[in-house]
């Protein structure tokens, strides 16, 4: 029970101190709105293209929301040494890091629903397979957050966290099938798509929203879950190796 009090309060503190700040809320709304508008105008198609753009915009909103916030907040807490306070608390490192990442996961999931709400005013969403979309959003939220954690553990300065995040994020926009199908990529870089976790989440979303996907849903979910576990365990290992020295 005591451990869950600690877990809950770390989550609430992070939501209060970082994620629910007005600039972040407005950023969470403006960012997906800008991406939707940009791709919609660029496509030159009618409103029917909104559904084609939706998986990419949802994914990019989660990816940028989670990685930006988590990598920066953890690096900031490390620099100010307030993270030490958490390491001194009588809760396991696994539970501590799950508490630290939960806020970012919720923030990412909330970000994903902004483009859905916008799209609901423009097109009919009744054909979407929600039982696939919702778990996919959650898994993309988790994998993106753990990617942010992995980045945070790999750097020591806040500016490095931002730079290193972009090193992963921007290639993902083009390589993971967000807005361009993977099969349209040159064959010599196509393998890169398959080593990036977001590819599998986007594939589920494309399948659930537009009925087009290249990998079976089961395999997509299994691979995404595997990426979540591997990234989390790698981050824990790095924390033990680099922060508890």
């Amino acid at each position: 029970m005591k451990r869950w009090i600690a877990f809950w309060n770390i989550l609430v503190k992070d939501m209060h101190a970082y994620y629910l700040k007005p600039p972040n809320i407005s950023w969470g709304i403006i960012f997906p709105l800008a991406w939707t508008g940009m791709f919609f105008i660029r496509s030159g198609s009618g409103l029917e293209s909104v559904l084609e753009l939706l998986p990419g915009v949802m994914t990019i909103s989660i990816l940028f929301g989670t990685t930006s916030m988590l990598s920066v907040t953890i690096t900031f807490e490390r620099r100010s040494r307030s993270f030490e306070r958490l390491l001194l608390a009588p809760i396991s490192l696994e539970q501590l890091m799950l508490a630290k990442t939960s806020g970012a996961i919720f923030f990412g999931i909330a970000n994903a629903f902004i483009p859905i709400i916008i799209a609901a005013f423009l097109v009919d969403l009744s054909g979407i397979a929600w039982p696939l979309v919702v778990p996919a959003i959650i898994l993309i939220g988790i994998v993106s957050t753990f990617l942010g954690l992995f980045i945070a553990v790999s750097v020591s300065e806040v500016f490095e966290a931002q730079t290193f995040s972009n090193f992963f994020r921007f290639p993902m926009i083009f390589l993971c099938g967000l807005f361009f199908p993977i099969i349209s990529l040159p064959i010599f870089i196509r393998w890169l798509s398959y080593i990036l976790p977001v590819t599998y989440g986007v594939d589920i979303l494309h399948g659930a929203i537009n009925g087009e996907h290249i990998i079976s849903f089961t395999l997509d979910f299994v691979i995404l879950a595997a990426f979540c576990i591997v990234l989390f365990l790698l981050s824990l290992r790095n924390i033990k190796r680099k922060w508890i020295v």
């Binding site: 029970m1 005591k2 451990r3 009090i5 600690a6 809950w8 309060n9 770390i10 503190k13 101190a17 306070r85 958490l86 608390a89 009588p90 809760i91």
Partner: peptide, 16 residues
């Protein structure tokens, strides 16, 4: 970013 009171309450919560 937390007040003095919030900081102490948060630290207490870490110990359950």
């Amino acid at each position: 970013e937390l007040t003095g009171f919030e900081n102490l309450c948060f630290c207490a919560a870490l110990y359950g």
